[in-house]
């Protein structure tokens, strides 16, 4: 229209969405939630390095 691209005008990208029935989630939010779940599981199963002797 005025030669201004959407990104230049600060317009947010519409993004990628996934929908299962009534459940709708944006791709970025899904990545954040999945990352947290993975980190939580890894924190439970990966052994903690033992540096100094603890009481």
């Amino acid at each position: 229209m005025l030669g201004i691209k959407q990104a230049d005008a600060g317009m947010p990208d519409t993004g990628i969405y996934f929908q299962w029935g009534d459940f709708l989630i944006q791709f970025g939010n899904l990545v954040v939630i999945a990352t947290m779940v993975v980190l939580f599981i890894l924190a439970l199963v990966i052994p903690f390095p033992h540096g100094k002797t603890r009481k």
């Binding site: 939580f40 924190a43 439970l44 990966i46 033992h50 603890r54 009481k55």
Partner: peptide, 14 residues
Amino acid sequence: EGQPSYVSSWIYVF
């Protein structure tokens, strides 16, 4: 100076 032994887990670092 130190923490109990059960604190030696990644779940306690967050």
